[in-house]
Design a protein around this nucleic acid. Structure first.
Length: 448
DNA sequence: TCTGGGGTCCTAGGACCC
DNA sequence: TCTGGGGTCCTAGGACCC
């Protein structure tokens, strides 16, 4: 087991002498991160694959892929042993097998992923109440107030990692720093199964030599654009004038990346917000988009989305449909309505209309994915339930929305909550099984 | 006869994250 | 034999209002 502790720049104070001290900023704005804040980013390594190796000792030390198969499907996660061969998530199974002939494909245990990750989060919660879970397998922790109980950062983080290893059996990497962004970068550097602590004052020394691609928000496209300007490291980015970064990447992105490269990250650790959109998508073997296909797939998707909206007592004013064609180009069509929509049937009708509209430009072309997103979310307040009982009357913007329908959907939601998804539903929806990915994975992704 | 300027919302596309 | 699923945020152009 690796147990790397890198403590950077214990003695130096780069910040504080030549610029306004962070504590001044803090007192002026109140909501800024204080100078002494300590944030951890904890990230389970190759999570799905590690769980499979935990559940089945025969898989340990072997290159494995969760999901997919040598003949088709897509790899959902790869163990580090497999990654060494260039296998990664999202890769078609046949290509993964090409790169790694000994690759072992395993079916996912999706309910286990959720259960075990929840246990890990419980352990994290023992170190501070300030835990911000950002996906199924990673979280930020503000441990500023915990250090007097658990000792210095490196001891607290080491203890945390040991507990996750001993009590649950999984490797977890941790980065610690003054800001969320830096803690996240540190945990990436720590992987696999390591710990990196960046002490206050050591930020520049730590950040400068790292590749820009490690920064949050720098993907392949941005990385390439920066490289064309000769910017490869975070230090080089920090030394580039802000206006020229903005000219290269746009105002908002440029300003954000410039700030992050200077380790200015005002974000605090906080529980996740309410969410701005709810969506679902389904990929399937290429097919000509006739009305049957649209109704089947979009019906399936709105069935999922509607239930999630209703359990949150929310509805959405904007419906967006995305269509991906066989050549992998895609288009979107959206429409915003005067009031929120959350019944399955209304969502489906509107989605089908949008899809037809989008398909008009390319008749006779095959498609292989349909997606729906509902945004502009509003509270599903009682007013809407007071519409005339059984109302199917279209609203002036064309959305049929009735209280009876909403109530019927709610009843179906309740039955499903008790007896499972497949226990009840519209016939066409239940019969739709073009999807190329297991249902359990979709349900897991919903919660992640 | 000429034609401002700020603000908001909507639509379409795209980068990025896990 | 191709290439998952669920999200966030940003940009740019246009409509529209005052």
């Amino acid at each position: 087991m690796l147990a790397v502790v890198v403590v950077v720049g214990v003695d130096r104070t780069v910040f504080g002498s030549s610029r306004p001290s962070t504590s001044n900023v803090c007192s002026r704005y109140g909501d800024r991160v204080g100078a002494s804040t300590t944030i951890l980013h904890a990230d389970l390594d190759a999570y799905y694959a590690s769980v499979e190796q935990l559940l089945d000792p025969a898989l340990r030390g072997r290159p494995i892929a969760v999901g997919g198969s040598a003949s088709g499907g897509v790899v959902l996660a790869a163990s580090y042993e497999a990654r060494r061969f260039g296998v990664s998530a999202g890769m078609p199974g046949w290509r993964a097998r090409q790169r790694c002939p000994d690759l072992c494909f395993v079916r996912g245990h999706f309910s286990e992923y959720q259960r075990i990750a929840d246990r890990v989060m419980d352990v994290l919660g023992d170190y501070t109440p300030h835990v911000e879970r950002i996906s199924i397998d990673e979280a930020f922790l503000d441990v500023t107030g915990s250090l007097h109980l658990f000792g210095p950062t490196s001891r607290l983080a080491g203890d945390l990692r040991r507990r996750v290893r001993d009590e649950i059996g999984l490797p977890i990497s941790v980065g610690a720093a003054r800001t969320k962004h830096l803690a996240k970068v540190a945990s990436q550097v720590a992987k696999p199964d390591g710990l990196v602590v960046v002490e206050p004052g050591g930020e520049r020394e730590f950040l400068d030599p790292l590749p820009v691609g490690l920064m949050w928000g720098v993907g392949p496209v941005t990385e390439r654009r920066l490289a064309e300007r000769g910017i490869h490291t975070i230090g080089e980015l920090a030394r580039t004038p802000g206006h020229s970064i903005a000219a290269l990447l746009g105002e908002a992105n440029g300003a954000r990346l410039s700030a992050l490269s200077h380790d200015a990250d005002p974000r605090r650790v906080q529980p996740a917000g309410r969410g701005r959109s709810v969506g679902a998508q389904s990929a399937f073997p290429r097919a000509l988009p006739d009305d049957d296909l649209l109704r089947e797939v979009l019906g399936h998707l709105t069935d999922r989305i509607g239930g999630r909206l209703r359990t949150k007592f929310r509805s959405g004013r904007t419906i967006t449909v995305r269509i991906r064609f066989a050549d992998m180009t895609s288009i979107t069509r959206s429409r915003t309505h005067s009031r929120g929509i959350s019944t399955n049937l209304a969502l489906c009708e509107l989605a089908v209309a949008l899809a037809r509209c989008g398909l008009e430009d390319r008749p006779g072309v095959e498609i292989n994915l349909l997606a729906i997103s509902v945004s502009n979310l509003v509270e599903q307040h009682a007013l809407q339930l007071e519409l005339p009982f059984g109302s199917d009357t279209p609203l002036h913007d064309g959305a049929p929305l009735g209280a009876a329908r909403w109530a019927l959907d709610r009843q179906m939601d309740a039955v499903r909550a008790k007896f499972g998804r497949a226990s009840v539903g519209y016939t066409s929806v239940l019969l739709s099984e073009r999807a190329t990915v297991p249902e359990e994975f979709r349900e897991l992704a919903e919660r992640a």
